[in-house]
Amino acid sequence: MTIAGMTGEAGQPIPGTHLFDGDAAKKGYAINAMCFSFNHDENRKAFLEDEAAYCAKFNLTPDQLEAVANRDVLGMIAAGGNIYYLAKLAGIFGLNVQDVGALQTGLSLDEFKQRLLDQA
């Protein structure tokens, strides 16, 4: 499906879209709390020094732990991650939202950038 075709039908679910609602906020509380902590440089450093210990401190769920270990952005979202918080985790690895977009869509970074340009 092309990106332009991804609006779907009014009243129906939105293709490729996961609304961050109360269920997601409840499910994702731990991973989002960990990512919120990355507003502080010392916490970003602590994560890089011992990722497993840092995740353990925030009681991540098994799904969240697996998604973080695999750098699986869609997995993090499925486990309740909110993209604004996840972007702080991505920042630790030097990734921006275009990199994160490419990771989620299975495109290379150049292909993802082209997808954006194609909508101009």
């Binding site: 609006t7 993209i83 939202v97 989620q104």
Partner: peptide, 13 residues
């Protein structure tokens, strides 16, 4: 704009 999900990169001029 859309940052998340399989529809990341969606724009609607």
């Amino acid at each position: 704009h859309q940052l998340d999900g399989e529809r990341a990169g969606f724009i609607n001029k």
